[in-house]
């Protein structure tokens, strides 16, 4: 008996059935690579898992050991600098990719009925990725990690009602203490990845159930088939995107490797403190307004983003407001870019 028939007896599925299962018809507009940005964060997430597990072999999460273990990874472990830098650039690109993907979904109106729930799942994925970026950076235990975590936790504490509890749960005490890093670590390397996997699974299941939303380009002739096959055509596109990303990550990691600033000093705050670039928007916002007001408005904005599909459907039923979402989107993008550039340009 050959291997294939041996296997077939134990795993009773045929090639045709497999093809049937995976072969979702893909709308033609996905021949354009910029519509495939949704696959990019997913691919980068896999990269984060692989490099994250590699880092975890040497990383030691305690205030006495964390900094030196990152130093060891960077300076001594063979290719440690490479994996650390890929993890860091992977995080940067992943956040950028999630944002770009979300902008694509927004401006093509792909969040509209019946895809409202998937938009909300996407919002959760965005928040999870941002929190992963925040907790990951805090693990390095350099000066900015430490003070970023302290300031971040205190911003959280100014949220009405649940603020103090969330700070206590994040830090494991009133302030940064001996038991803080292990918490941040388990949140970063276990809880967030597991939640992300679950939500990604739901996200993709819903896409499969509803199909990718259709778009027509004027260049397409009438009567041509509007779909092509997931397997192998679309899979090939994704493999190509994956390779390009891997090359990009390796080049970035080599040319601009992750650096290591001075070790955390709980007794002195550096002259200039900044979060990572993806929090510049929120950081500038917090400097513009007094604490509680800024925190409440931030929460309100995030909530609005969550329920946008419903606001949008309400607006589209009013005369003259049908296209409002485009203008809101443009305004939002401009404000985000504006606040980010502003924060990047000044020291304080």
């Amino acid at each position: 008996m050959g291997i294939s028939s041996w296997l077939k007896e134990r795993i009773p599925v045929s090639g045709d059935q497999l093809r049937e299962l995976t072969n979702e018809p893909v709308p033609n507009h996905l021949r354009h690579w910029w519509f495939c940005l949704g696959g990019t964060p997913a691919y980068l997430f896999v990269i984060q898992i692989v490099t994250g597990i590699l880092l975890a072999f040497y990383y030691e999460p305690s205030s006495r050991t964390a900094y030196n273990s990152v130093k060891y990874i960077t300076d001594e472990a063979a290719y440690g600098w490479y994996f650390r830098s890929v993890h860091k650039w992977g995080a940067t690109l992943m956040i950028a990719a999630v944002i770009l993907h979300q902008m694509r979904v927004f401006f093509t109106g792909a969040y509209r009925k019946p895809r409202e729930l998937n938009w909300m799942i996407g919002m959760c994925l965005l928040l999870l990725t941002l929190i992963a970026g925040f907790t990951g950076y805090s693990l390095v235990y350099e000066q900015l990690s430490y003070w970023g975590t302290t300031v971040g936790a205190n911003i959280g504490a100014s949220v009405p009602v649940v603020g103090d509890l969330s700070k206590q749960m994040l830090l494991g005490g009133e302030t940064y203490n001996e038991r803080t890093l292990s918490r941040l670590y388990i949140i970063h390397a276990a809880i967030l990845p597991v939640l992300t996997i679950v939500l990604l699974g739901l996200h993709i299941t819903l896409i499969r159930l509803q199909g990718v939303s259709e778009l027509k380009f004027s260049s397409e002739k009438e009567g041509e088939p509007a779909h092509f096959n997931f397997f192998p055509d679309h899979l090939l596109t994704e493999i190509k995107i994956g390779l390009v990303l891997m090359i990009l990550l390796s080049v970035l990691a080599t040319v601009l490797p992750a650096t290591l600033g001075p070790r955390a000093d709980p007794l002195s705050t550096p002259e200039v403190i900044k979060p990572e670039w993806f929090f510049y928007v929120a950081f500038r916002w917090l400097k513009l307004f007094s604490g509680t007001f800024a925190v409440i408005t931030t929460g309100f904005i995030v909530f609005t983003m969550f329920v946008w599909p419903f606001i949008d459907s309400f607006l589209r039923r009013r005369k003259g407001l049908e296209e409002a979402s485009v203008w809101v989107g443009i305004l939002a993008v401009l404000s985000i870019v504006g606040l980010t550039v502003w924060e990047a340009a000044v020291a304080h």
Binding site: T150, V151, N154, I155, L267, V272
Partner: peptide, 22 residues
């Protein structure tokens, strides 16, 4: 008391200064 950074004493200005948000 704002967000928990460390202030330092500036002798020439006779003041405590917090670098996080001035």
């Amino acid at each position: 008391p704002h967000l928990g950074c460390k202030v330092h004493w500036e002798g020439q200005n006779q003041r405590f200064f917090c670098p996080c948000h001035n």
